[in-house]
Design a protein around this nucleic acid. Structure first.
Lengths: 355, 355
DNA sequence: CTGAAAGCGCTTACAG
DNA sequence: CTGAAAGCGCTTACAG
C-alpha cells in the first residue's frame, strides 16, 4: 500500500529525512539558511508526498490567517459576479482566500458583516459600499471600492471619465438632445457619471436628468418612464447610468413602437452579460475590474504588512492605492445619429421586419 | 485607560477570574461540568471583554476549520448572487464561513478550484456544476446542487415540476403552439425543464424546441433567432429555459415590431433581478434558493460529522439530502392567450402608444 | 548550515 | 465541580 495516506505534516517529513522540523520549514519557505542540496531533497520529498502546509498551524503561529473578507452591501447587485471573480483572482494570486459576507442590502447589517468577518480572523476586508455609506474605522485594514470623489476611497473606476466617453460618443454621432437616466441622486458613482457626460456634451446641447426611484426601477413593471414622450419632444438619445436602467428604457421604447437605435440611441454602464445578447446590443461603458481588484488587493496587503511591522498607525484604517482611479472603456454597439441624418444602420432593420 | 486593548484570549480571561483555561473553555462551550454560578461569571466577563475565540487555535486543536468552500464553475452566471447569498446565509446560521473559488468558466479549472479549497482546509464544499460535469470523488465531503435527474445530486430545484408550471400556465391561457428556447441540450437542468413543459402541455399541442448555441447566445448581437417567422407560422408562445434567453427573445420580437404579450407570450426561468423591471415583465419560474441552500448545507454538515465520528466511509463522497428536490414557483407577469381570443391585456398597451 | 525549544490559543481526556 | 497537562502544526529567535 504505497498510496499516500492522508496529508503528511512537517514533522513527518522531517522524520522521514532525518532532519529537524525547523529545517524543513526553512527549506520550504526559503527563509532560513539551508544548504542547496538539502533544501532540494526536502522540496522533492514534500512534493512527492503532496505536502500542503496547515493553514491553521501557520495562522496560529504567525497571527495571520491569509484570508480576506469581501463585503458587498447589496449582494443582489448584478455586478457582483464581475467583482467577486476579480477580487478572488487577485487575492488568490497573492496567496489569500476570500470569505464572503452578506449584508442582504441592509445598511445596518453592513457593520455586522464586517464584525463577523473580523471574528473569523480575516487579515483585511474589501468593501464595496452602497450609496453614500461612509466606512467608519473598523480596527481592521480595509480597502474601499467606491468612486474617486468619495472621501476614503481606495481605488475605483474613473466614473467621470466613463461619463465623458458616453458624452463624446453621443456628441460625435451628432446627438444634440440627451436624456440621462439615473436611479440614485445621492450616489457619488452616479453623480460622477452625470458630470462626465455633461462635460463631454458641452454647454450647447440640451441635457436632462431623469431620476427613477430605485424601488420603482425594480418593482415596476408597467410604471412608464414616459420615454416615448421625450422622443416626441425631440430627444434622440438616452444615456442610462447602468445597464439595468438601459434595459428598462429599451423595452419601454420598443414596446411603444419606437425603434432603437433608429428613433433613439441608448447607452448604459457596466456591460452586463446580457448587454450583447439583446437586440439591439447596448453601447456600454465597462469598468476594468481586474485592474481595480488588483490595486485594491495590493493596497490592502501593503496596509496589512505595515501594521504587522508595527510602524503603521494603531487603527490601520483605510488603504490608499497608488493609482486610485482606473480608466473605463467604451463598448460600442450602436452607431446611429439622430434623424434625419441617419446612418446606414436604420436600413438594416426596418420596423416590422423579422430579418 | 479602560478601553479594551485588542482581543483578549482564554488564558487572559482565566487569569482575571483566577480559574483555569479549561474551565473557561468548558463554561463557554457548555460542554464540561461547571457550576452554574461560575459559568455565569465567566460568560459575563467574556462578554464584557468582547472575547471572541480564535478560529486558528480552535481549528488547530479540533482539526475543523468551520469554513466551507463554494464552487461555481461559471461565476459569471447571473444566478450567482442568488446562490451565493443563500449559501452564505445558511452556512452562517450553522456557524460556518464561506470561501469562494473561481474556475473562470473553465471545466478543467473546476478540479483545480476544489483542490485549492482543500489546501485551504475547508471542512466541505458546495458545488454547482456546469453542464453535465460529473463530480468525481474528491476526498472531501461535497454537496452537489444540479438537477434531480443527475446522478450524485444532493439537492436542487425540481426543474421538471418547474417546467410543468410553465406548461400548465400556457395551456390554461389557451396556447396551442409553443416554441421552447434552450441553450444546452446536454444540460440535465434544461432537459428536465423541457420534459416538464411538454408533459403539462400534453400531446395535442404543437411544441418545438429551439436550441441556441451558448456562445451564440452570448456573442450576438444581431444573430437572429428567426422568432418573428415562428409567429407567422402560428406559434403564440415562447417558453425560454432561462430569463437570459427570454430577454433575448423579447428584444428580438419587439425589434421586429411584434408586441409582447399580445402577439406572442413569453416565459422564462430564474426570475432574475431585471425580469420585473422590463416592459413587459416576463412570467418566470423561480427556484427556492434559501430552501435549496438550507438542505445542501444541512446534508453537507451531516456528512462532515459522520466522517468525524469515524463511522463514515473512507472517502466521504457526496452528501445526500433528505429532501433532494425542492419545488419551484411561478411568478406571473403576463396573462395573454393567443389571438383572436385575446384577454383584456392587449387593450391596455396598443402598439405605438407610449402610455 | 542545522537543531532544540518555546509558544501561538484552544480543547480534550484524565486526575483530583 | 475544577485544574494540570498534553498536543494540534507551524515558525521564529536562539544556540551550536
Amino acid at each position: 500500500m504505497n498510496a499516500p495516506r492522508s496529508r503528511p505534516n512537517l514533522t513527518q517529513i522531517a522524520a522521514l529525512l532525518d532532519v529537524s522540523a525547523a529545517t524543513v520549514s526553512n527549506a520550504l519557505s526559503g527563509k532560513g539558511r539551508v544548504s542547496a542540496e538539502l533544501a532540494e531533497r526536502i522540496r522533492t520529498k514534500a512534493a512527492e508526498l503532496g505536502y500542503m502546509p496547515s493553514h491553521a498551524g501557520r495562522a496560529l503561529r504567525t497571527g495571520r490567517s491569509q484570508v480576506l473578507g469581501l463585503v458587498l452591501p447589496d449582494i443582489a447587485n448584478p455586478l457582483f459576479p464581475q467583482i467577486a471573480q476579480a477580487i478572488e483572482h487577485a487575492a488568490a494570486a497573492a496567496g489569500y482566500g476570500v470569505l464572503i459576507a452578506d449584508s442582504r442590502g441592509d445598511a445596518a447589517m453592513q457593520t455586522q458583516a464586517i464584525t463577523h468577518l473580523q471574528d473569523r480572523g480575516v487579515d483585511g476586508i474589501v468593501i464595496v459600499p452602497r450609496r453614500g455609506t461612509r466606512i467608519i474605522s473598523t480596527g481592521s485594514p480595509v480597502a474601499v471600492i467606491d468612486s474617486p470623489s468619495t472621501p476614503g476611497n481606495t481605488v475605483s473606476a474613473d466614473h467621470w471619465q466613463g461619463g465623458e466617453l458616453v458624452g463624446s460618443h453621443l456628441a460625435a454621432l451628432g446627438h444634440r438632445d440627451v436624456v440621462i437616466i439615473g436611479s440614485n441622486p445621492a450616489s457619488n458613482v452616479q453623480n460622477d457619471r452625470v458630470g462626465g457626460i455633461r462635460s463631454a456634451l458641452g454647454p450647447d446641447r440640451r441635457v436632462e436628468v431623469l431620476w427613477i426611484e430605485p424601488h420603482e426601477a425594480l418593482h415596476g413593471p408597467g410604471a412608464s418612464l414616459g420615454l416615448a414622450a421625450r422622443v416626441a419632444e425631440g430627444f434622440t438619445a438616452f444615456a442610462a447610468l447602468s445597464d439595468l436602467q438601459a434595459l428598462r428604457a429599451l423595452t419601454e421604447l420598443q414596446q411603444a413602437g419606437l425603434r432603437v437605435p433608429q428613433d433613439a440611441s441608448l447607452t448604459g454602464f457596466d456591460d452586463l452579460v446580457w448587454s450583447s445578447a439583446i437586440t439591439p446590443g447596448i453601447t456600454s461603458v465597462r469598468m476594468d475590474m481586474p485592474a481595480i481588484a488588483g490595486e485594491a488587493i495590493q493596497a490592502l496587503l501593503r496596509l496589512i504588512e505595515s501594521r504587522d511591522r508595527g510602524n503603521g498607525p494603531r487603527d490601520p484604517g483605510i488603504a490608499r492605492a497608488s493609482r486610485p482611479s482606473v480608466p473605463m472603456s467604451l463598448v460600442v454597439r450602436q452607431t446611429c445619429g439622430p434623424s434625419p441624418s441617419r446612418t446606414a444602420e436604420q436600413q438594416q432593420t426596418p420596423a416590422g421586419d423579422s430579418q
